[in-house]
């Protein structure tokens, strides 16, 4: 028996928004530690890793490990039936071929349940090596979304260059060039509004704007986002999900021919 009840059901709706543009289907792996999902997009350019810890749920029960393959388009349709204020419970029997989503209104006067067919997905989790990144940049998530949107107008690719002075995002295309420089914040009232750079060595890498824009669908999950870069390895874009976990996106860089 698997059962996970989330008081703040809107979080699951936001998680869905953060996944569905990149992934058509994915396995939700449930254990007594929580729920994990790891999947690559169809072109194997990016990888999404989601972790929702058991302690973050109001109620959590997982008698035996199970992997639920879900069509994310279908799951998204179902979660759209939940109100933002609803409490969401995900339930499945052991070895079941369906999963049930239960939505309760806050005052319990409306309860809906939706049963969805599971899929057989033969997915394996890849090990992600521990990496000491040459640069990590924390910035407001809304700022990062804005930068990705603005620079996408100029070209398909964006260069992210990090030095101790700050971080520069640049894109070049037919209409010209756009450059956005962010300096490390000298003084901030709120932690989540800060730009914080930790740098061992300067790094400059090129990434596809299309994927970066997809990652920013997670913006509503967190006020800040962390970018981690090292030469020639995938960029990590991490959004923490309050009190419960994180979603991390890995994006392979573009290289000069």
């Amino acid at each position: 028996m698997f059962e996970a009840r989330l008081l703040q059901g809107s979080l699951l709706k936001k998680v869905m928004e953060a996944l569905k543009e990149l992934l058509n289907e994915a396995a939700w792996d449930c254990s007594d530690a929580g729920i994990q999902l790891q999947a690559m997009d169809n072109s194997h350019v990016s990888l999404v890793s989601l972790n929702l810890r058991a302690e973050g749920f109001d109620k959590y029960r997982c008698d035996r490990n199970l992997s639920m393959g879900m069509n994310l388009g279908s799951m998204s349709k179902i979660l759209k039936c939940a109100s933002n204020e609803d409490i969401i419970t995900i339930k499945a029997q052991d070895n079941a071929d369906t999963v049930t989503f239960v939505f309760e209104s806050p005052d319990q006067d409306k309860v809906s349940d939706y049963e969805m067919k599971l899929m057989n997905l033969d997915q394996e989790h890849l090990g992600i090596p521990e990496t000491d990144y040459a640069c990590t940049i924390r910035l407001p998530s809304s700022e990062f979304a804005r930068i990705c949107r603005d620079l996408s107008q100029f070209g398909e690719s964006m260069v992210i260059s990090c030095t101790k002075e700050g971080v520069r995002f640049s894109a070049t295309g037919d209409i010209g060039t756009g450059n956005i420089k962010l300096a490390q914040s000298a003084k901030v009232d709120k932690e989540e509004e800060a730009v914080v750079i930790e740098m061992q060595e300067p790094v400059s890498l090129t990434f596809a704007c299309r994927y970066l824009n997809s990652f920013t669908k997670a913006t509503s999950l967190s006020k800040s986002v962390q970018l981690s870069m090292s030469p020639e390895v995938p960029l990590v874009v991490e959004y923490k999900i309050e009190d419960i976990g994180h979603v991390r996106y890995y994006l392979a860089p573009k290289i000069e021919d």
Partner: peptide, 14 residues
């Protein structure tokens, strides 16, 4: 022109 690489460096579980 820069060409897109694929995700590498992640290992298959043993």
């Amino acid at each position: 022109m820069a060409s897109q690489t694929k995700i590498t460096g992640f290992y298959r579980p043993t």
